[in-house]
C-alpha cells in the first residue's frame, strides 16, 4: 500500500519550512528562528521539532546536506518549497475569505 502523503501542514510544520526557506539550518537553529520570528508566540518543543524533521525527510521536503557530530544540517527541496507555497496560498485564501466576510458585515451594519 502506498504511504499516505501529507494532506496539510500544521502551524509548527509551516514554520519549520519557513525557517529552511531562508537558509539551511540544523534543528536547534530552526527552533530559535521560529522563536525569534514569532516573538515567542509559536514555540516548538524539541520532540515536535524532531518528529517534523523526520517526517519531512521521509516526504523528501527536506534533505540532510551536512552532518557534524550529532548535528545535522537540513536544506529545503523543491517538493518542500511546493508544499510551503501551497500552504501560503491556502492561508491567503482563508484571509481573503475572512476579509470579504468582514467587509460584507460592515456594509450590512451600515445599512
Amino acid at each position: 500500500m502506498p504511504r499516505k502523503a501529507l494532506s496539510g501542514l500544521t502551524e509548527s510544520m509551516f514554520y519549520v519550512l519557513m525557517a529552511l526557506c531562508r537558509q539551511p539550518m540544523c534543528g536547534i537553529e530552526v527552533a530559535d528562528f521560529v522563536d525569534t520570528k514569532t516573538q515567542g508566540e509559536v514555540r516548538i518543543g524539541p520532540a515536535t521539532l524532531y518528529t517534523i524533521l523526520g517526517k519531512f525527510e521521509r516526504e523528501k521536503y527536506i534533505e540532510v546536506i551536512e552532518v557534524s557530530g550529532r548535528r545535522r544540517t537540513y536544506s529545503i527541496t523543491a517538493a518542500g518549497l511546493g508544499a510551503y507555497a501551497r500552504e501560503i496560498r491556502r492561508l491567503q485564501r482563508c484571509l481573503d475569505d475572512a476579509a470579504s466576510e468582514e467587509s460584507q458585515l460592515g456594509r450590512e451594519s451600515r445599512e
Partner: peptide, 14 residues
Amino acid sequence: AREMHTDPDIQALA
C-alpha cells in the same frame, strides 16, 4: 523547560 511536544497533531503522528 519547554514541553517536549507542543503540537498534539505531531505527537499523534509520532
